[in-house]
Design a protein around this nucleic acid. Structure first.
Length: 490
RNA sequence: CGGGAUGUAGCGUAGCCCGGUAUCGCGCCACAUUUGGGAUGUGGAGGCCGCAGGUUCGAAUCCUGCCAUCCCGACCA
C-alpha cells in the first residue's frame, strides 16, 4: 500500500486514476482499453447488480441470455443503428489458428467465415431477430426481458470504469402491443434507474430526454439520468430508449392485435453499465480515498483491535465477536481485522482509502471503560462512545451516513446549476465554474453543434418536468419556450 | 486515428545526450523491539532495463518497427 493520493485540486484525472488502482478496484489489463476488475471493485458492481436485478424482477422482468456474436447482416437492417455503431465494432473473421511451420501461431486463412460476426456493442438486432419467432399475437405480449452481459465498443480513448473497450452492463429489451405501453415502460425503467442512483448510490440525478443529436442510434426518444461529478462535469448514468416500431420493422416482427389486424410491435431498451462504479467514485470520494455509501459498501463496518499483549487481544476479540454476531443479525457486513502483521495506523489509512463507512477501534482503555472508538468515513469524525446498544447505534449511523452522503452530493449539485442568459455568460460559467447550465436554445441541430464545437458543452437533456418560459436562444436570439440543460460531460 | 510525453524490481525513480549488463527510496523476506493515526533497528532476497529486430567485440544507452499508458484533439448513446 503506497502512501499519498494526488489531490482533486491538483489533478482531478490523476486523482481518479490513482484512486481506482490504489483502492484495489481495477487495473489495466494486457489488452488495450480493457480492464481487470479486481475483487473489491467487482463486489461493488455485484452490489449494484443485486439492487437492480431485484427491481427489474419487481417490475415484471425476467433475465435471459443472447449470443455474444451478431451476424454482420443484422446490422444493416436498421439504418440509423448501423450508422451509430459501425465505427466501433470488433469483428470476428476466422475461426481457427494454425502453426506456420516456424513455430508461430497464425490465423488459418482457410478458416474464413462465410459471414463475419460482430462482437455485440448492444443486442437490439440479435434480440429482435429472435423476438420475431416469439410473437404472433397480442397474447404473446408484452415481452419483458433483461440480459446481464458484456459488450464491446472499440473506443478511441478509454478510462477505467468510465469508458472501456469491453464493459459489463445490463440491457433490458421489451416488446409491447401499443405505443402508449412502450412509452410507459421506457419511463418506468428510467424511474427505476433514477431511484437506484439517488437512494442506493446516493447520487442525485436529473431525469430528461436527449435531443435528436444525442439520441440512441435507432431510437425515437432517449430518456436519461444525468449526474454531476465533483469536477463540475456531467456524467450520463443511465439511458432508457423508446424505440418505436423501428426494430420491429427492420426485423419484420408483427403481431395480430385485438381487432384482428396485423401491426408491428413496439419496443424499448434500457441499460446501465460498470460506468456507474466510476460515477460512484467520482461523486463522493475525497483526497483520502473512496467514500462509499453504506448500501453499496462491500464492508460496512470494520473493527480494528489495539492490544499490547496476547491476553489483551483475547479479551478484545471476545467483545468484538459478540458485537460482530449482533451486527450480522442486523444484516450489517462487518470485518474484524485481527491481522497482527499491520499496525493500527496502517489499517486506519487503508480502510479510509477503501471507503469503509464505519470504523471501530478497541483497545485496553475501551475494555476497561466499556467504550469503543467510532469513526465515520464520510465526515472523518471520530468519537469514543459507550458500547451499550452499539449494534443499534451503528445501524442508525449507517442510515444517517447514506443520507448525509446524498445530501452533500445534492447540495453540491444544486449549487452548481446556474442559468445563463447570453452566450458570453454561458462561456464564462463553463470556464470558471463548470457544472450544469440552464439556457435557452432555439431547438436546432446547427446551434447545438455550434455550441459543442465552440465550448465543448453539450445538451445533457431536456428535463422531464421542465419549467416552460419565454426566452431567446443564447446564440441565435431566436424565440425559445424553455431552458435546456447544458454541461461539459464525460 | 493525429500531436505530445512516458515505459528500468511489486510501486516510484537515477543512469541514456557521451555504449562496458544498473542507482536510490518505498514495499517484500528473516529476527528483535514495537502496536490508541501509515513503527524502528540489523541482516537479506528480488532485474529477459516494455517487446522484436538491427548496428557493435559489447546495447538500458544508438537505429528501425511494434505494444502499452498518460495528456491534448478527433471519435463516442
Amino acid at each position: 500500500m503506497s502512501k499519498g493520493l494526488t489531490s482533486r485540486n491538483e489533478d482531478y484525472s490523476q486523482w481518479y486514476n490513482e484512486l481506482v488502482t490504489k483502492a484495489d478496484l481495477a487495473e489495466h489489463s494486457a489488452v488495450r482499453g480493457c480492464m481487470v476488475i479486481k475483487p473489491y471493485g467487482y463486489s461493488i458492481w455485484e452490489g449494484m447488480q443485486a439492487f437492480l436485478d431485484k427491481r427489474f424482477k419487481e417490475t415484471g422482468h425476467s433475465n435471459a441470455y443472447f449470443p455474444l456474436f451478431i451476424p454482420k447482416s443484422f446490422f444493416s437492417k436498421e439504418a440509423s443503428h448501423v450508422e451509430g455503431f459501425a465505427t466501433e465494432c470488433a469483428v470476428v473473421t476466422h475461426y481457427r489458428l494454425k502453426n506456420d511451420g516456424n513455430g508461430n501461431i497464425i490465423v488459418d486463412e482457410d478458416a474464413k467465415l462465410e459471414e463475419e460476426l460482430i462482437v455485440r456493442p448492444t443486442s437490439e438486432t440479435i434480440i429482435w431477430n429472435t423476438y420475431r419467432g416469439w410473437i404472433q399475437s397480442y397474447r404473446d405480449l408484452p415481452i419483458l426481458v433483461n440480459q446481464w452481459s458484456n459488450v464491446v465498443r472499440w473506443e478511441m480513448r478509454t478510462r477505467l470504469f468510465l469508458r472501456t473497450t469491453e464493459f459489463l452492463w445490463q440491457e433490458g429489451h421489451t416488446a409491447h402491443a401499443t405505443k402508449q405501453e412502450a412509452i410507459e415502460e421506457t419511463e418506468r425503467m428510467l424511474d427505476v434507474y433514477a431511484d437506484f442512483a439517488e437512494n442506493v448510490m446516493a447520487v442525485p440525478v436529473i431525469r430528461g430526454k436527449k435531443t435528436e443529436t444525442e439520441r440512441f442510434a435507432g431510437a425515437l426518444d432517449t430518456y436519461c439520468i444525468e449526474a454531476l461529478m465533483q469536477d463540475g462535469k456531467a456524467l450520463q448514468a443511465g439511458t432508457s430508449h423508446f424505440l418505436g416500431q423501428n426494430f420491429a420493422k427492420a426485423f419484420d416482427v408483427k403481431f395480430t392485435n385485438k381487432e384482428g389486424k396485423l401491426d408491428h410491435v413496439w419496443a424499448t431498451s434500457w441499460g446501465v453499465s460498470t460506468r456507474l462504479v466510476g460515477a460512484l467514485i467520482m461523486a463522493h470520494s475525497d483526497d483520502s480515498g473512496l467514500v462509499l455509501p453504506p448500501k453499496l459498501a462491500p464492508i460496512q463496518v470494520v473493527i480494528v483491535p489495539i492490544h499490547r499483549s496476547d491476553e489483551e487481544f483475547e479479551k478484545i476479540s471476545a467483545v468484538a465477536n459478540e458485537l460482530i454476531s449482533k451486527l450480522k443479525s442486523r444484516n450489517i457486513s462487518v470485518k474484524y481485522d485481527d491481522r497482527d502483521t499491520q499496525r493500527p495506523g496502517f489499517k486506519f489509512a487503508e480502510y479510509e482509502l477503501k471507503g469503509v463507512p464505519v470504523r471501530l477501534a478497541m483497545g485496553g482503555r475501551d475494555l476497561e471503560n466499556g467504550t469503543i472508538e467510532i469513526a465515520r468515513r464520510d465526515t472523518r469524525e471520530k468519537q469514543t462512545i459507550s458500547r451499550e446498544n452499539l449494534d443499534e447505534y451503528i445501524e442508525k449511523l449507517l442510515e444517517e451516513i447514506q443520507l448525509s452522503i446524498y445530501n452533500k452530493a445534492l447540495n453540491f449539485r444544486n449549487e452548481n446549476i446556474r442559468e445563463a442568459n447570453c452566450y458570453d455568460e454561458f462561456k464564462q460559467i463553463l470556464d470558471e465554474k463548470g457544472g450544469f447550465i440552464f439556457a435557452h436554445w432555439d431547438g436546432t441541430v446547427e446551434t447545438e453543434k455550434k455550441i459543442k464545437e465552440e465550448t465543448k458543452a453539450t445538451i445533457r437533456c431536456i428535463p422531464l418536468d421542465n419549467k416552460q418560459e419565454e426566452g431567446v436562444c443564447i446564440v441565435t436570439g431566436k424565440p425559445s419556450t424553455q431552458r435546456v440543460l447544458f454541461a461539459r460531460a464525460y
